[in-house]
């Protein structure tokens, strides 16, 4: 599971982090894609509470890099909390932005999303490696 790591001392993870943009480059509740040095694509989401969530940009059902262009929302999950979500613009599967868990498969088998650790430092967004569930 990803944790919002803004309070974590930066040095402990420095090696794994990539600076992709400023927080102000992001738009609340609208994703942006970023390209990591190894060629993988991630989707970044700035939420209304100021948190930034990062998941893989690739829709695991369609195989296309489109998730940053989906609709951000929320969904009530089993523990009674509202979790932030992303819906694919292609066939509307929905994932939990905190955990990458697929919440709506539209009848397909479950395919979860890799999530990335994020740190915000000096207004910059730093992204860690994927943590697959």
């Amino acid at each position: 599971m990803t944790v919002q790591t803004a309070t974590m001392p930066q040095s402990s993870r420095a090696g794994a982090l990539v600076d992709v943009c400023a927080v102000t480059d992001l738009e609340t509740e609208r994703g942006r894609a970023a390209l990591l040095p190894d060629g993988t694509q991630v989707a970044l989401f700035l939420l209304p509470d100021g948190a930034v969530r990062v998941v893989s940009n690739c829709d695991p059902y369609a195989g296309a890099n489109v998730l940053s262009r989906g609709i951000v929302g929320t969904r009530l999950v089993a523990d009674g909390t509202e979790t932030p979500t992303i819906a694919s613009p292609l066939h509307k599967q929905v994932w939990d932005l905190r955990t990458g868990e697929v919440l709506e498969t539209h009848g397909r088998e479950a395919r979860h999303l890799p999530v990335h650790a994020v740190e915000i430092d000096g207004g910059r967004v730093l992204i860690g490696e994927a943590e697959t569930r």
């Binding site: 209304p48 989906g70 609709i71 929302g73 969904r75």
Partner: peptide
């Protein structure tokens, strides 16, 4: 309530 979804937002 909440922040919407791909049905209500459009």
């Amino acid at each position: 309530h909440g922040r919407g979804c791909d049905v209500c937002k459009p």
